[in-house]
Design a protein around this nucleic acid. Structure first.
Length: 845
RNA sequence: GCGGUCGUGCUGAAAUUGGUAGACAGGCACGGUUGAGGGCCGUGUGGACCUAGUCCAUGAGAGUUCGAGUCUCUCCGACCGCACCA
């Protein structure tokens, strides 16, 4: 018998799908739509195993939904702007466009080899003017809606990449890409007013019931809503009186205030610009370079001013004003009042600078001895030492009451504060979407008129080593509008903007009038299932949600609240790590197993140290090239294995044994297929029992259940089970009709995972390749006999096979006839019987 | 520090959502086939004991329940996210 020739067969079907535009899709009003989207890749050059996993999971779903009769939109594109292209161009002395296009064509052919059910007619690439011109139009739209503004702000400056980083791109005080220690720098930047939608972004999370809780909680924390109030404080020295505002969630502890702390960036700081001591202190504070954790636990430093702040609840009390390193300018008002007794951080500060610690909350109403010494009390209790607030229950009564008072006296207001900051989108980079803005001779910004769009990125042959090359292109920078001369904005947009609306573009990728066609978007959106890595839980997903809201804002035609109805975050692909005697990383290609021991290929005497399985990364050399795997084992085997070992949301470990066993399983399925083909020809006159039909139906139920719950690893186990069953059962005699009925259904269920194999078998047996998803027959599933568990005192004592829906007394009669069970029942009184029909009986005695 | 997820054989993992713990796979062992190796096929594989059987087993300990891997509480451990957020 022939072996399964995956090379030939996979190529054949891929060509068939391509030639027939098998996955091409369009609006079909009488069909239910399903938009299945996987996070589109950055064209780095080659696909990696993470892509294989991501796109296989998505493909299983897309093909399943399609078989179920849905009109499935399953597109693919390229997130093709970004720094790596620029870096590669600098290194290899070529232009980013060429580099990117080459990568795209290579990766596209790799993805095709995976046999994905993609509608390639909808392919998009964010670095093309056909894409980004619409993005520029969106930018201007948001500008008109007041959602875009410019301001000067301290930014995270990456000294190596010479660019500004978003807060989210700073990890442990370092640039996410370069790893360089991030500096602070003041620059004029463009911002998206994401904060405007804080409340809505938070509120809508409740409606996203097909999102993982984990992601929703992360977004919730990121938005960081807190309830409190703003309080005005009078600050004065001998000459002047200023008023400054603080935000607090604990106004009720105001009588415990013993200092007021300001950020070094607070407006008041300008009066100290010439103070050498202060300048020195400020420098000390802005020292970055340690981890976030270190910053958080760093010593609290303060710079004492001669200013005094008045307690608004008791104007006789005046406390010193400090500049302090722990006060952030971009949260609240960049100023806090310090209540050491009930805030650990304030207490640390107070102890260090020997400030008063006044306890104003005690856990017990009548505990006259309670006083805070070296550990702040933040729990509930009762207010004391606080004049008119004394005796109030804290926090329920005390906070409300204090705010009421402050509002009456016009020294404070209830306020909700968000941690979420506006999204700085300017990047001092060449390889990005140009911002469609121009400046007049007074340096005032103006929109580039719509008819001048797109603002095309000029072709550059040579990139400077640092900074933004667009800055140096004087010809390009000049623009004439209505006879007036303007200078272009040279910043480009953060690439997260590119990926914040690509899912809309996929609905009508060729529409050249606007970013999307209204009808198409109304039909296809929202994305029914979005699949990707959990690393995008905050950034990309929050920005996309914002963008959808921003487009719908003040828009009568489009009103889509949330872009992604369902979200699935898959785990990473891991592999063992290897090191040689010197501690250098070794790639799996460089080692082999010799007498059960891992050794170096080059020198088999050298034993390799096997490290823990970790997420595949180039630096640890524990990557496996998908292309080689497809070459050696086939796409179906790769797809099968990447799904088989672990649930999709968890990490999976790649192993030689695993991919090998998946390959062998397909070969076994092939042999089984040959066997079944020959059984069909025999066409026995009658069926030898209905075992085959019953088991097939049980199988169909399991498969359908596991597909809808993303239990793809269990799905593969189901394949193995039905294989083992068929191998034995098929030699019993069945009619041609029975075999075809059941086996063709089984083959269809394999299409989502191993499509090439399944289609080949369907075709060669003349079962037809356009069949619908097989539904199971409930009646057949309910066989007339069931297995009932028998427990005595909660312990399993036996298993009986009885007729379905047997009554309790009949079952008891039957059980008493079973020697091995009855021995637990004789000589004892039955106190109680718990009986769950067709499942279990528990006899208590 | 705050928030979250999770602890099941040698390993990856199943468990109809409170009802037969360990499906399926890997690994290993033994047997068959083969001149040998590989491959393929078969069997076994949680632990203990007085081994036709019985008892113990889901990180540890308690609780709820006829019944707990699943629910509740305490502790231990691992992982992830956020982090001076007032």
């Amino acid at each position: 018998m022939d072996r399964y020739n995956f090379k030939k067969i996979e190529k054949k079907w891929q060509k068939y799908w391509d030639d027939n535009k098998f996955f091409s899709t369009k609006i079909t009003n009488n069909k239910k739509k399903f938009y299945c989207l996987e996070m589109f890749p950055y064209p780095s050059g080659k696909i990696h195993m993470g892509h294989v996993r991501n796109y296989t999971i998505g493909d299983v779903l897309a093909r399943y939904k399609s078989l179920q009769g849905y009109n499935v939109l399953h597109p693919m594109g390229w997130d093709s702007f970004g720094m790596p292209a620029e870096n590669a161009a600098r290194q290899n002395n070529l232009d980013p466009k060429t580099w990117t296009e080459k990568n795209i064509s290579n990766m596209k052919s790799q993805l095709k080899k995976l046999g994905l059910s993609i509608d390639w007619d909808r392919e998009i690439s964010t670095c093309t003017p056909e894409y980004y011109r619409h993005q520029q139009e969106f930018f201007l739209e948001l500008y008109d809606k007041g959602l875009v503004y410019q301001k000067e702000q301290y930014v995270n400056w990456d000294p190596i990449d010479q660019t500004v980083l978003a807060n989210e791109q700073v990890i442990d005080g370092k640039g996410w890409r370069s790893g360089a220690i991030v500096e602070r720098k003041k620059l004029k930047q463009w911002f998206f007013n994401i904060n405007k939608f804080s409340e809505e972004l938070l509120e809508n999370l409740n409606s996203l019931d097909e999102w993982p809780n984990k992601v929703k909680i992360m977004q919730k924390n990121w938005i960081g809503k807190s309830f409190g109030c703003e309080i005005s404080f009078k600050i004065n020295n001998s000459k002047k009186v200023h008023e400054i505002k603080c935000f607090t969630t604990r106004p009720d502890t105001l009588f415990g205030m013993s200092f007021l702390a300001l950020s070094v960036d607070h407006p008041i700081a300008k009066f100290y610009e010439k103070d050498e001591e202060f300048v020195k202190f400020k420098k000390e504070c802005s020292k970055v370079g340690t981890t976030e954790e270190a910053i958080a636990s760093a010593e609290k430093l303060g710079f004492k001013t001669e200013l005094l702040a008045t307690n608004p609840l008791n104007t006789k009390i005046k406390v010193p004003v400090y500049f302090a390193n722990f006060v952030l300018m971009d949260y609240g008002f960049g100023a806090v009042f310090g209540c050491p007794a009930h805030d650990q951080r304030d207490l640390d500060f107070a102890l260090k600078y020997k400030l008063n610690v006044q306890t104003v909350v005690r856990p017990d109403k009548n505990d006259n001895y309670f006083t805070v010494k070296d550990k702040a009390y933040t729990g509930p209790g009762y207010i004391f030492n606080s004049s008119f607030l004394d005796g109030l229950k804290c926090p329920e009564e005390s906070i409300i009451k204090t705010i009421e008072y402050l509002e009456e006296e016009k020294i404070g207001n209830k306020k909700i504060n968000f941690r979420l900051k506006d999204w700085g989108v300017s990047r001092q980079r060449y390889w990005g979407c140009p911002i469609p803005i121009m400046y007049d001779e007074n340096n005032q910004p103006h929109k580039v008129p719509i008819d001048k769009l797109p603002v095309k990125l000029p072709e550059i042959t040579k990139l400077e080593t640092t900074g933004n090359p667009l800055d140096t292109l004087t010809d390009w920078k000049e623009i004439n509008v209505n006879g007036k001369k303007y200078v272009r904005e040279t910043d480009t947009l953060d690439t997260f903007v590119d990926s914040s609306w690509y899912f809309l573009r996929f609905c009508s990728p060729k529409n050249n009038k606007y970013g999307f066609d209204e009808e198409e978007v109304k039909y296809w959106m929202p994305v029914d299932q979005y699949i990707g890595g959990v690393e995008h839980a905050i950034l990309h997903l929050l920005y996309s949600r914002f963008f959808m809201m921003a487009i719908s804002y003040k828009n009568e035609k489009i009103n889509i609240k949330e872009p992604f109805k369902g979200l699935f975050t898959q785990g990473m692909v891991c592999h063992e790590t290897y090191k040689n005697e010197n501690g250098d990383w070794l790639s799996p290609d460089e080692i082999e197993t010799f007498n059960g021991v891992k050794v170096e290929k080059r020198d088999k005497n050298k034993i390799v140290k096997v490290g823990p399985s970790e997420s595949m990364s180039k630096s640890k050399k524990n990557t496996i090239d998908p292309e080689k795997i497809i070459e050696n084992y086939g796409a179906d085997a790769a797809r099968l294995f990447i799904l088989s070992d672990s649930p999709p949301e968890k990490d999976v470990q790649w192993s030689d044994e695993g991919i090998n066993s998946s390959y062998k399983f397909i070969q076994k399925l092939w042999l089984l297929n040959q066997k079944i083909s020959s059984e069909i020809l025999k066409d026995h006159e009658s069926d030898n029992g209905d075992n085959l039909t019953k088991r097939t139906n049980q199988y169909l139920k399991k498969i359908t259940d596991n597909l809808s719950s993303f239990s793809y690893n269990v799905l593969i186990a189901n394949f193995h089970e039905i294989y083992s069953f068929l191998v034995k059962e098929i030699s019993n005699k069945y009619t041609k009709k029975t075999i075809i009925d059941n086996y063709s259904k089984i083959l269809i269920t394999m299409i989502p995972v191993i499509p090439h194999f399944a289609y080949e078998c369907l075709e060669m047996n003349d079962f037809g390749i356009n069949k619908a998803w097989p539904n199971y027959n409930k009646k057949i599933l309910e066989s007339d006999r069931v297995e009932v568990v028998v427990q005595v005192n909660g312990k399993k004592r036996g298993l009986v096979n009885v007729e379905r829906n047997i009554a309790e007394n009949k079952l008891m009669e039957f059980i008493k006839k079973q020697k091995n069970i009855n021995k637990y029942l004789v000589d004892r009184k039955q106190k109680k019987i718990i009986f769950i029909q067709n499942r279990i009986i528990n006899i208590i005695n």
